[in-house]
Design a binder for these strands. Structure first.
Lengths: 230, 230
DNA sequence: ATATATTGCGTATATATTACACAATATGAA
DNA sequence: TTCATATTGTGTAATATATACGCAATATAT
């Protein structure tokens, strides 16, 4: 069976990190080709005998040194025929979240450099990658309404305010602290420890941990967050 | 720039129809090749100079005679290397909804036959198409929670019970009629007419129409349906 | 006329959301 | 050491939303 078709298929990875009240995106600087030295999302062509999911995990590892296995399919970009000016490429984008503290970047042999960029300050990117990041962020934001978040992004022990700041950062609006706390605690996916963390001045905050099982159950079954109290 | 990659890319269409308290899926019987006479989703290979969205619209037209332009990207199936036993094919699935009453099917030259099948009674399908339909139905179900539905599925004038039955059919559980009505009317996306429809016995129902602008606004901005009252 | 099917409709109760402010505990500077 | 400043921790009342629930009205079929 012969099909005449000259389209290539690639995967791209949007990895969000969170640190000090800011969201970051992992980017690489291209090493070869026409686009040398341009910043872009990690990604590359899919191998003939490789599932899409594995392709994106592999590319991430090769180009950034980051090992993330839980990547969610975001969208397939294939309407703009010239999104890659060199040839027709359809890209399946995946996104995921990590705690940058727990990783060290390593551009390896495939990229010139791998670096975290604040979402608010993304450089000029190759292809339609800016649009892809935009879409990924919208999805992340939408997910707050129906899934718990934080496990992959925060330290394993964290003050309550970290979780609160994560939400306000992503939602880009303030939240009533008392109502937020009440709501989160009612979901029962985090638990107090008896440790405290002091950060600069101010009363030290009690540290919390994620309740693993409950958190994962809620990921699957979904929650209804509905934060209107801005 | 030469990339060695031998993967083909296809699109598949899941079109849902609704009639008499049943959801239907549009299928075609293959005309050529190894899979001749097997039922499958409408779809086919993407042309080199064709956006994905156009490819799925074209294939639908060619294989079923149905002209649907609002197709939403569902998911890209590319993890199972042998989903097409003949060669590596990655399929981008799109789904949409139509009112079967307003269409006549026409298999054209590309398919042997095009036919509506009740979702509850899908025949053996080629490839992983059963899985794809399953995923599309889950998405449709999920969408009830955050978008209005019915405009594409129901007659332009419809009794309230049609909308109610559409919801119960998709959600596969009963709904309290009074609370449902209250909720729907509060969204303000349908309006009364002064016409009535009598169907067999029983009191005739007042006919409603969709408020176009409001409906579309709600599609974009989203609603919160949250039907717990089963 | 009577049985049967379907539509149309309101209220009381429970639950969830929202608005809102002050005391407790730490650090840093005078 | 005291005072200013920063941050955490907490409860209640008002309002809005969700839920449970049953009967009369209007048609057809016999």
């Amino acid at each position: 069976m012969k099909i005449k078709q000259n389209i290539k298929i690639a995967v791209d990875a949007i990895v969000f990190g969170y640190q000090e009240n800011q969201l970051f995106v992992l980017l690489i600087k291209q090493k070869y080709g026409d686009l040398k030295n341009q910043w872009a999302l990690p990604g590359g062509f899919v191998k003939d005998d490789e599932p899409l999911k594995k392709a994106v995990v592999r590319e991430l590892k090769e180009e950034t040194g980051v090992k993330v296995t839980t990547m969610e399919q975001l969208y397939t970009f294939g309407d703009d025929l010239k999104r890659d000016p060199r040839l027709r490429v359809i890209s399946v984008a995946y996104f995921g979240t990590v705690n940058p503290k727990e990783l060290k970047l390593n551009a390896g042999t495939d990229a010139e450099e791998a670096k975290w960029f604040p979402l608010e300050n993304i450089p000029k990117l190759a292809f339609d990658h800016k649009k892809i990041i935009q879409k990924a962020f919208e999805r992340l934001k939408a997910k707050l309404n129906y899934q718990p978040i934080g496990f992959d992004l925060l330290d394993s022990k964290f003050p309550f305010s970290d979780l609160e700041n994560l939400y306000t950062t992503i939602l880009q609006k303030p939240i009533d602290r008392r109502n937020f706390r009440k709501k989160i605690l009612s979901f029962d996916f985090i638990a107090e420890t008896d440790e405290y963390r002091k950060v600069g001045s101010g009363r030290p905050g009690k540290l919390y941990v994620f309740k693993n099982k409950r958190y994962n159950d809620l990921l699957k079954q979904g929650i209804s967050f509905e934060i209107k109290f801005a």
